[in-house]
Write a protein that binds this DNA or RNA. Structure first.
Lengths: 113, 113
DNA sequence: TTAACACCTTACCAATGGGTAATATGTTAC
DNA sequence: GTAACATATTACCCATTGGTAAGGTGTTAA
């Protein structure tokens, strides 16, 4: 685990892991099985491996509940790895983000993507 | 080029490419040779390959000046791929970014990282 | 205590990716 | 025109990675 920023972007490189993070960000706590139902084209051990990766990167944390393992986002680690990089590029993304927010205010409510 | 967001995060996964983007964001226009001097442990064709990758992802653009190739950031593509993802996680990073900004105001001036 | 369950771990495979070396292409300088 | 230059392209190597399959560990239920 050399650099947190490195770990973060390596974790974000895979669409499955990004989706896992999305789900955890949206729903809070989720078990492995609950996550697995969102990836029907993937075998259980595949999910597990991705979760291990995210845990190794410090982006998620897991606790045990009986025979189930509950995963949740680790917001501080996530944010503290991301923020310095974001700060460098703020002039580039801030305007685009503002435009998105305006669209979201005027448009139909619901999930964005 | 299936998804712009996918291309973006795949491009950001490599530290060399992130550094190239950093340099372009900081200095504006740079030739391949100028970029190459920042990576003494890398052979010229290696840089070229990374630049091709960034160009394929639409994150940089290149123009010709005689026998030199000038690369620059493509801010709109960069921002428009990043913004929707950022919006989803805004609650997570915004506080950390605020803290960074406060530190930057009170601390010594210079490059952040 | 035995069976089903939830998840992890390991072994293995094919594909991708970052790196170099060598070769091509186009451009300025001589 | 020929040589040096700047960059791109190709071929190749090795490490990493995403995926599956199979087996292991601990836990609840019967």
């Amino acid at each position: 685990m050399r650099d947190a920023q490195d770990e973060l972007f390596k974790a974000l490189a895979d669409p499955t892991r990004r989706r896992v993070l999305d789900l955890l960000a949206a729903h809070g706590d989720l078990t492995v099985s609950e996550l697995a139902t969102e990836f029907p084209n993937l075998v259980a051990s595949g999910i597990s491996k991705h979760l291990m990766g995210l845990r190794a990167a410090g982006l998620v944390r897991s606790t045990r509940d009986g025979r189930r393992q509950i995963y949740r986002l680790e917001p501080e680690a996530f944010a503290s790895a991301l923020a310095p990089w974001l700060a460098k590029y703020e002039p580039y993304w801030s305007a685009a983000l503002d435009r998105l927010r305006v669209l979201a205010d005027g448009g139909e409510p619901g999930q964005n993507d």
